Simulated scan of single mutants.
Amino acid sequence: MGLVVNPRLLDFALLCLIWGATWIGIKAGVESVPPLFFAGTRFVTAGVLLLALASFRGERVNVATEDRLRFLVVSLLMISLCYGPLFWGMRYISSGTAAVLELALTPIALLFFAVLLGDERVAVRHFVAIGLGVAGIALLFGPQALAEAAPAGPGSDRYAVGAFAVASAAFTYGLGSVVARPLLKTYPPFLVAGITTFVGGGALFAYALSFEAGAVRALRGDWGWAAWTGWLFLVLFGSLIGYTLYMRLLRDIGASRAGSYAFVSPVVAVVLGVLVFGETIKPLDIPAVILMLAGAYMAMATPSQAPRSDR
């Protein structure tokens, strides 16, 4: 008798693996390319490819008039208003602090908006899962965040504004994810992913060209092989595959369960750091990994809570 594996669980595992590795591409890119320009070109390119694939698969790239506003709102929330503040805020706070804020708040924001908008019903297991995951993230990134924040002075205005910007990214992403779910009941994930990345990326790209220092000069493309490799990885894997997987999971298992990727992706990042950069595992890393995986397991094991089917 063959082993039967839940296809959604495979999607979730692949999403965690891909998005756990994207930090390498981001790190390689933003060291040489203005970050908003880098993100905007990534999403626009991914959007064009996704829409071309949707057309090739026979999916009509046609949006009903009554859904256009929702598509625009989702595009701005999940792409423009998420990645814009996230990259901007990371200029003023440490990477450790950004990781704690973004990864810990994303599952909380997803659950909050899913319950607020009536897409899911809250259960005790939700809080247990989030508590375990957040505790693991705090153990993994907390000491680094405190150490890196101390010299900058967390009381400074720029530090506070940067931290707020990164935190806001989690909530705009969470709200956008829940608002997107009704679209996924009507349109294929490929199409939803393509439209939102193209529109949201286009807004980022336009903003970068208008206001970001060095963006116009970056149009020449002299980024260096490391930045280009990172950009290609983010386009093909982070957006083309990863974002589509997330949309499919969002449709099939709901926002709060899909968002538990935030508890597994750091584990992948830790493993890749050891394998690729020869980083060492610190004493707190092991219990942190166990807590995050336990939180993800609790979230994924939670039965779907009768999502609304109305539009």
Rank of each mutant, 00 (worst) to 15 (best):
M1T: 13
V4W: 01
N6Q: 11
L10P: 03
F12I: 05
L15A: 09
I18K: 00
A21P: 01
I26P: 04
V30D: 06
V30R: 09
E31M: 06
P34M: 11
A39C: 08
G40R: 03
V44C: 12
L50I: 07
L51F: 09
A52G: 08
L53T: 10
A54E: 04
R60C: 03
V61R: 05
V63M: 05
V63G: 10
T65R: 14
L72M: 10
V74A: 13
V74T: 12
S75V: 08
M78Y: 01
I79P: 03
S80K: 01
R91K: 14
I93C: 04
A98Q: 02
L101R: 04
L101D: 08
E102Q: 13
E102D: 08
L103V: 04
A104Q: 05
L105S: 12
L105M: 14
V115I: 14
A123D: 10
F127G: 11
G131C: 07
L132A: 13
G133A: 02
I137W: 01
A138H: 01
L139R: 02
F141Q: 06
G142T: 06
A150I: 02
P151L: 06
P154K: 06
Y159D: 04
A163Y: 05
A165S: 13
S168P: 03
A170E: 10
T172S: 14
Y173D: 00
G176T: 07
S177A: 15
R181I: 09
K185A: 14
T186V: 15
P189S: 09
P189D: 06
P189F: 05
F190R: 10
G194M: 12
I195S: 03
I195G: 01
G201H: 07
G202W: 10
L204E: 12
A206G: 14
L209V: 06
F211N: 07
A213K: 15
R220T: 11
D222R: 12
D222E: 15
W225N: 07
W231P: 01
L232A: 14
L232Q: 02
F233S: 03
L234A: 03
L236M: 13
F237D: 00
I241L: 15
G242E: 04
G242V: 04
I253A: 00
A255F: 08
R257N: 07
V264W: 00
V267G: 05
L272H: 07
L272G: 08
L275T: 13
V276Y: 12
F277S: 06
E279I: 01
T280R: 15
T280H: 14
D285Q: 05
L291A: 14
A294N: 11
G295L: 01
A296K: 00
M298S: 11
P303E: 09
P303K: 05
R308L: 13
R311E: 12
